[in-house]
Structure formats: C-alpha cells, structure tokens
Design a protein around this nucleic acid. Structure first.
Length: 962
RNA sequence: ACCCUGGUGGUGGAAUUGGUAGACACGCAAGACUUAAAAUCUUGUGGCCUUAGGGCCGUGCGGGUUCAAGUCCCGCCCGGGGUACCA
C-alpha cells in the first residue's frame, strides 16, 4: 500500500534532520543550478510556481547522482513593490508581513520536497544582505566607463587623467553633450565651454566644482530626467516596468515627468551586452528580446545650423543618403530649443500644443499614435549641403527619449514624415530615380539617387557611406551608432527597498563609509507613497535614521531589481560579513550553469544582472563576465478565469448582475468584467443557471466591495444585503470563462499543498513534468493526474513484491536499460516530460514479464529519484539498502541489451559501398526475399550518396547501417 | 506594422539528425470482480471503406525538393508572446 503521506512526511523530516542537502565546496566538479527566486507575496505559491523549481530540482538531483558537487539554493526577493503593496493593504510593517509570507512560502516549498540547502538562503530585505547591495552601489558610484580600455574603471583613474592632462584623451562612455547640463556659474571656463578643459583648469577648481564634473562621468549619477511617473503607485518606473502606457503592476496610468533621479549608466554597456549574447546558451527568442531592447541602429549625427540663432540642432538618422530629401525638421515638444527658437507670432500655437501634449498620459499618447498633430515654430534651419531654408516643426511623433529628440524629415522615404507632410501640406521632394511616392513613402535603399548632388547615381547603400564621409569631411556631423536602450532609472519613491548609502552636503551626494553599512531603513508613520513624488523616507525625522550625516539623507530607495542583480553570487557565501562573497568560493562556483525562470524578465532582471556582473568584472571583483551561462524559460501555468459582467454605475458602489441579453443590447462597454472564484460560478451561476438569493448574498459577503451593492436577478433585488422578492420572470447570470494567468486577483489559484494532501508531492512533481514541454505555456488541469498517481502506486506495489535476488533476465535488462538511456539523454537535453512516459513504459514492460528482480527495482529507484525523491527513498529502503538514495550513483546503460535479434545481409554495389540489411527474426523465406528486393531497389538510389542511417519503407522495417 | 513562437486524434502531448505518425497518459467503450458503487484488472480506441484478409485518406492551407516530409524550401491562414511613432 502506497501511503504517500506517511512516506513523504518521514523522509522530509529525516532529510532535514541529517542535513542531507547541505553543500560545501570540495574537490569534485561543481554544478550550479539556480531558480529565479520568488517575491514572497501574500497570496502564497500556486501550482504554477513550482514548475521551474521541480525541473531544476530534477537537474540538481540528477547531477549529484552523476558525481557533481551541486549548488542548488533558494531565497526570496523580498524587497519591492508587491511586498510593500501587501504591507499597505494590511497595515503592518513590511518586515513583518514579509517574514510571514516567507514562512508560508518555505512551508509550501518544503512540502514539495526540494533539495535546497536552506543554510544558504538569502533574503534581499535582510540588512546583512543589502549591506552588500549598498556596497556594490558604492563601487558603481566610484567608477566611470573608459572607452579606450572598454571597461569600467575606478573614478581615481579619471581624476588622475584630469590632473595630468585635463580632458585630453579622455574617452568616456557618456553622452557627448554631457556638459550642457552643467551649471557653469563660478567655473573657470567661460560660457563657450564645450566639454573640454585642461589640467590647469582642473587644478583651479574647488572640490565642489570637481565633484559636479565627476558626477557626469560616474556609472551611477543624479540627473533631471524625463521619467515614467505613476501617480497611483507614487513612484517612478523603469521602462521595463511600463507596459502599454500603464504600470506593469496594477495597471495604473503613467505620465512623463521631469524629476531628479539616480540612473545607472547601462548605455555604456550596450555594445558589450549585445555582443556577449553570442556566447550564451539561451533561447533565440529571449536573446532577440534583449537585442530589440538594446536596439542598435547605425547611422549618422548631423548638425543643422539655425537661421538667426547661434545654437544648432543635431539629428540622428539611419538614412543620411536621403539628406537631399529633407523638406522640414521635427522636434519633440519637450526639446529644450523649442522655447528659444519659436518666433513670437507662432508662440501661442506652439505653447498650446506643448501644453496639450504635456497633459496627456502615456497611454493616451500611444492611443492617438495614428492621429497626426504638430505645430510650426516659425524658425528655420539651414540645409548643410544645399543651404536652403528648412522649416522647423514640433510634433509628438518625435520622442525626446530617442536619439537627440529631433529628426530631419524625409517624407519621400519615411511614412511618418510622409503623413505629416501630407497633413500640413509640406513638400515631398523625391530622392531616388524611378521610385513611386505618389501614394506613400518608399524606404528602399536599392534605388539610385537622382541627379543634382554629389550622391547622384549611387544606390542607397553606397550613398549612406559616401554621405557620412562627406558630412564628416565638412565637419557638421559624424557616423554614429545609436542605441534605443536608455540609462536605467535607479531610484524609487518607496519605503520598502534598499536605502541609498548616500547623504547630501551642499546638494552634492556623499557616500557613507563601508563601516557605516548597512544603512537600515528608518521608521516612519506611514509606508504609503505620496502622490506628489516625495519619498516616504522623507517622513523620517533626523533621529529616526540610524545614521544621519550632512544636510539630509537620500530618501529614495533602490528599485526591486537591485537586490536580484547579484543574489546568485551571495548563495556561494551567504553569511560572509567581510565581503559580498569570498573570492575563493567564487572561483570554485564560477557562474550559474543552468538558470530557470520566466521569459518575462528578459528586459529587466536578466539584463540588469548581466550589466552589474560586467561592472563587477571590470572592477576586478569577480572573474566571470556573464552570470547565467545556460537558461531555460519555463512556460506559465495558466488557469481558467471566470468573469461575471456587472453594470458600471458611477453612483456609490452600485452594481447589478445583468441579464445577458440586456448586456448585449446596451453594449458591453457599459459593463465591468470581474473575475470571480470558479466554485462560486459553478455552484451558483453557470451561464445557463438561475441566480438565487443565497448566491447573491454569498457573493456580496465574499467580495466586501459589493457588500452594499445592488444586485438584480430573476427572483428579485438584493440591496444592502436585504432581498426583495419580485417573482415572475427569470434572468441569467452572465458569465464568461477565459484561459488566462493564474493569480490571486483572478481567484483561480491552486495551492500545491492541496495537491500534495490529495495525491502526494511525488505525484505533483511527476504530473507537473508530465503536463508537457517545460517551455510551453499550458493551463492547469488535473485531468491526467490520476494516471500519474496510479503509476506510482503500481511502482510501489511492484517494488514491495520484488524478492528475487538472482541475476536479471534479458527482458528485464532490456526494459531497464532502455529506461536508463532515455532518462539520461532526456534529462541532459532538458526534455523532462518524455522521461515520465519512459518510466511508465518501463514499468509496463516489467509488469508484463512479471519481474520481481530486486536489482532491477533498485536501479529503477535511482532513476526515478530526481523526479519522485520520497518514493525512491522508500523503495531504496524496502529493497534493503542503507543510507540515502541521494548518495547513490547514476547507472550507465549498456547498448548490448538494447539491440534486437536479427539476421544481417551484407550487400555491396560497384565495390564502393556496403550496406548491412538487418531483418527481424522469424520472417518466412518469401518475406526475407521480398525485403531484400525492396532493399536493393532503395539501395540503388543510395549508391554513391552518403546515408548515415536508412530505413527502407515500402513493406517492413529495415535498418540500414553504413 | 515588425520580431520571436507555435498549429499533430475527443483532450494533454510523443516522434532527438528527413525514415513504421499518434508513444505515454487522460477520456470514452466493452468485459472481469462486486448485491451495488468506488477501487483494481483485461481488451479496444485517428478517419473512411471492408464479412474478413486488407485497402484508401490523414500532422492549419496551397505548391515544391526527395526513393522517403509532421520534420527541409517557397507562398498563405490562424493562435500565443514581445516591441511599437526608435527617425
């Protein structure tokens, strides 16, 4: 009798007691397998979470059996928005709710029987951990990017350069116009400063002035930036945290706002992040996501002089070959020159337009993407080659965040410019010969440039090269590679995050010393963010801070991704108080051999981790250049979401269940879709069942926001919990099922512990693998779980009946060796689902030959132990083995047991090639002759070719081995 | 719009490099045991035709390459994901 409850509880207790999964550095070969650690949200784990964890656990156990020293840790990404949101909702300190949530997560994880070494657990919100996040921040702050050596260097090397030669020969990975943001008051150089100064200049500056200059070179810096501001969440968001113009978390509107923020200079690493993707064993799709995000484009920077103004406008273009097709210029409405150049008679119109754009949310801006709008500034630029006047417009289709925030418009070659020109009646000069531009723009590069310029007769491709040469030669521009990826905004106006180890003196940032770390969070009355952008830490008084220095402390906190950038290093040495990790240990464990997690982190965590690792590598703190060598992105497990339709009512909390026909008649836009618990729907209101009084009452009790709502159904009306019967006609509860994500807000989560109670952890593990390919998204359903559970029952039964000590026979050996081969090869290529089938096939075959052989089942136990460790451990004991199966050795398969008995007919053609024809035993003479004839026919085709393996099809199976 | 993915029975999915398509499991059907149910076991199960032996058709659609195509090539259709005025 397979008593999984008893077996699983017993072994889990023993593993814990004997610390079976404790890992230490030794002289064996290492293998590091890592899962993306979870956010400990209040909802607990659902059955989707363990999917990747089970796979990594299988790999970890398998590698251990193969003789590797395996590091397989787990921890919690306990800082960040979700933990704080939960704290705000429940009114408790985030540290307390986080601890509670982590406890629940750990209980759930332990129940599934993972082989984590919990001694190595890390929590990003633990001061002993974020001490080092703050320390790393300090290293990044104290660095600059040297383009000559193409790596980050300590800021001291830059200071040395400034002291010796000023900016001469300094090639830094920063924007060329960095000096424009410098407030030049009191600096030794005049107002025509163009970013270059001498050693003498440097020597004449005071400390504050020097610091102001250095801050423009540091890898993390404060600047006034247009940020994604989310008023609802009360914080700025990084680009990857904004989806479709709303916040990824919560779906709140996001607007652009100019704020003083910390940024990380990831742009300096764009090319290396792009290049090093080559060497990674990641899926093409996730590499592609990163490539697109980095968004390299090759082109040119071109400077246009202005009529009547000293300033000039720089544009970036990928098509300098079309420069003679320029008929106007467009600036982003936020472009700093807009105010300067707008003529007085255009001022009103331009101001009106700029205001209108400013007040639009990101979502509105995206929604109106197709509508053409803009305003003429009244100013003109001078075409660098022809000297013609080019009118300057502003329009929101030009983004301040990309390139220079200004474009040279070539309507004949760019559809957006074309549409703009048509709309405002601007010229559309042709660029290429024989290209039709009467209906739309034509972006071809294959046509030849029209007569009348130095580019005449060249194809677009040739003209790009030639035009850049000419632009550089005449000194009004240069060839340039541009990246779409912006520097990452690093501060959040939040409470629950790492405090910056920074204070301010005279508005200049200063770092705390290493001895003063960790800087822990001060206590505040409220964790709630404010709508105007003042961080909650600003509520703390001077005395509330554990350390208070200078004029004020930095009150922003670091974003959620800070702690997760380097956690994989901390697992190697989790309790080190002298360093973030012992170098010897880093040397042993190297980087992560196999990383499992969702592909949704492609532009966030996975990019930022690579970025930080490269900085730490450049600065010599670590010796690996990439964190995650190989990665598998497990698919999401979805659930069925049941929606009900409710009438939207602006009046206080009113809601109605509506009858379906009516909803359709009134138009669905008047209704809200609300996800509800599946059992509520199935119990009380399938689409075609009546909604009863109890159903309504239960429902309004269950969702507190509808406690005082009004519900209508066929039998009457429920108001404030009082039901008024109206009798007579009936109406339907409108429901709709959709496949979607699994999550608390959809009320469709399934707790893995529930499954463990019902079928056991081993069944859950096996079943989640059996569901299908790991990478694939799939809905959760328990339809097939009985099959897997039944298999384990049968396996256990067969095992308890195995008493035969003698040597295994041929059939048994064939069954088990087929399984060894399949399990080995499939785990190696991470095809976890097919192995489960192989287990079942092997057991079916052993049962068919009524095998009772103990050796065979011992081997079976080892093979299944990565998948179903509890039952394997129990089998091991039942079969009379001592010790833990974890310490067993993975069996090798013997090809000899796998070959079929067969006759072999050697045949040769023209003395060139020889084939061996293998036929199954027991064929009649005629059959064999038939086979040989069919084979000869095929072999004639093959003669002279080079087959590796051939199976002749016409009649029966025939294997050909060259 | 662009870039990734995927499309195979009633269902989830196998088929590793082109080589017996549908492994394994669910579901369904029939049978055994049982007073009955559950559990368990046995058998069958892509479609169409055939009394049978067997035959024909079948991997989203249309073409092609090959002795041989779910797999490779060309052109479409549909689903999922990412990016989105990126100059």
């Amino acid at each position: 009798m397979y008593n999984f409850k008893e077996i699983e509880a017993k072994w889990q207790a023993q593993w814990a007691q004997d610390e079976v999964y404790k890992v230490e550095e030794n002289d064996k070969e290492k293998f590091y397998v890592l899962d993306m650690f979870p956010y400990p949200s209040g909802a607990g784990l659902h059955v989707g979470h363990p999917l990747g964890y089970i796979a990594s656990d299988i790999v970890a156990r398998y590698k251990k059996l193969r003789g590797f020293n395996v590091l397989h840790p787990m921890g919690f990404d306990s800082f960040g928005l979700p933990a704080e949101q939960y704290a705000i909702q429940t009114g408790q300190h985030p540290a307390i709710t986080t601890a509670t949530n982590i406890k629940r997560y750990k209980e759930q994880l332990k129940r599934i029987g993972f082989n984590y070494d919990w001694n190595r657990e890390v929590q990003t919100s633990d001061p002993n951990y974020y001490k080092w996040t703050q320390w790393i921040f300090k290293q990044i702050y104290n660095s600059w990017y040297n383009k000559d050596t193409d790596k980050a260097e300590p800021i001291s090397t830059l200071i040395e350069k400034f002291e010796n030669n000023g900016t001469y020969n300094v090639e830094a990975g920063i924007e060329e116009d960095w000096f424009k943001e410098l407030n030049l008051d009191n600096f030794p150089f005049g107002e025509h400063f163009a970013g270059e100064f001498t050693a003498t200049d440097w020597a004449s500056m005071n400390a504050i002035q020097r610091e102001k200059i250095l801050s423009h070179f540091r890898l993390t810096y404060l600047s006034d930036t247009w940020v994604n501001w989310c008023p609802e969440l009360g914080t700025v968001l990084a680009n990857d945290e904004v989806k479709d113009g709303v916040s990824e978390r919560g779906g709140y509107p996001v607007v652009k706002k100019l704020m003083r923020q910390w940024s990380m200079r990831i742009s300096a690493y764009a090319q290396r992040l792009l290049d090093d993707l080559e060497g990674l064993d990641w899926s093409d799709s996730i590499k592609e996501v990163q490539r697109n995000w980095i968004g390299r484009s090759d082109g040119a920077m071109i400077r246009f002089e202005l009529e009547n103004h000293a300033e000039n406008i720089e544009v970036f273009t990928t098509r300098p070959d079309t420069i003679f097709g320029v008929s106007f210029m467009t600036l982003a409405p936020e472009h700093p020159l807009v105010e300067t150049i707008t003529t007085s008679d255009q001022k009103d119109e331009v101001n009106r337009y700029v205001e209108a754009v400013k007040n639009k949310s990101e979502r509105d801006r995206q929604a109106n993407a197709k509508t053409i709008s803009g305003a003429f500034t009244g100013a003109y630029a001078i075409h660098p080659f022809s000297g013609e006047k080019v009118p300057i417009w502003i329009s929101e289709y030009v983004l301040m965040g990309y390139g220079t925030g200004a474009v040279m418009a070539v309507p004949s070659g760019d559809q957006r410019d074309y549409d703009f020109a048509k709309h405002f009646n601007l010229a559309i000069p042709p660029v290429f010969e024989d290209v039709d531009i009467s209906e739309s723009a034509n972006p071809t590069k294959d046509a030849r440039v029209l007569e009348g310029s130095f580019l005449a007769g060249l194809t677009g491709h040739e003209a790009i090269k030639k035009s850049i040469e000419e632009i550089e030669g005449q000194g009004f521009g240069n060839g340039k590679v541009n990246y779409r990826m912006r520097d990452a905004i690093f501060s959040r106006q939040r409470y629950w995050g790492e405090p910056f180890p920074v204070y301010f003196e005279n508005e200049l940032p200063r770092l705390l010393s290493d001895e003063e770390l960790p800087l822990t969070l001060p206590s505040v009355d409220k964790y709630l963010p404010t709508e105007d952008g003042d961080p909650p830490l600003g509520r703390a008084h001077k005395d509330d801070w554990p350390i208070f220095k200078g004029d004020r402390m930095e009150c922003n906190t670091m974003p959620g991704w800070a702690g997760s950038c380097w956690y994989w290093l901390r697992y190697m040495d989790p309790s080190n108080s002298e360093a973030f990790c012992d170098p010897e240990k880093m040397k042993y464990w190297g980087n992560v051999d196999l990383y499992l997690g969702g592909a949704e982190h492609g532009t966030g965590h996975l990019l930022y981790s690579r970025f930080w690792v490269k900085i730490l590598y450049d600065l010599g703190f670590i010796h690996v250049n990439e964190p995650f060598q190989k990665m598998i992105n497990q698919g999401m497990i979805g659930g069925v979401i049941e929606y009900i339709l409710m009438r939207k009512e602006k009046t206080n909390g009113q809601a109605h269940f509506m009858c379906k026909d009516l909803a359709e008649k009134e138009g669905l836009e008047n209704f809200v879709k609300i996800a509800v618990r599946t059992d509520i729907v199935s119990e009380y209101g399938q689409a075609n069942s009546y909604l009863t009084q109890e159903a309504l009452q239960q429902f309004s009790k269950w969702m507190p926001e509808f406690e005082h709502a009004t519900f209508e159904c066929g039998q009457g009306v429920l108001r404030d919990g009082n039901f008024e019967s109206k009798g007579g006609e009936s109406s339907w509860l409108v429901t709709k099922s959709e496949q979607g994500k699994m999550g608390k807000r959809y009320h469709n989560t399934v707790d893995p512990v529930e499954i463990c109670d019902h079928y056991g952890a081993d069944t859950l593990r096996l079943y989640e693998m059996f569901l299908g390919p790991l990478e694939q998204h799939k809905p959760w359903d328990t339809n097939g779980i009985t099959g897997v559970h039944g298999f384990l029952k049968k396996l256990f039964k067969a095992c308890t009946e195995a008493t035969d000590e003698s040597a295994a026979n041929k059939k048994e050996l064939k069954a088990i060796h087929t399984l060894i081969k399949k399990a080995t090869e499939d785990i190696d290529r991470h095809s976890f689902n097919t192995v489960v089938s192989a287990f079942m096939i092997a057991l079916n075959e052993l049962n068919a030959v009524k095998s009772k052989n103990k050796e065979i089942f011992k081997t079976f136990a080892i093979l299944i132990s990565p998948y179903a460790p509890h039952i394997a451990e129990e089998m091991w004991k039942v079969l009379g083995q001592d010790g833990y199966i974890v310490n067993a050795t993975w069996p090798a398969f013997n090809e000899e047991y796998l070959t079929e008995d067969s006759y072999a007919y050697p045949i040769s053609f023209n003395g060139k090639m020889r084939f061996k024809l293998e036929l199954p035993m027991g064929l009649s003479k005629e059959d064999i002759e038939k086979e040989v004839m069919a084979f000869e026919k095929t072999a004639q085709y093959l003669d002279g070719k080079d087959p590796k393996k051939v199976i002749v099809v016409p009649n029966k199976i025939v294997n050909v081995v060259v």
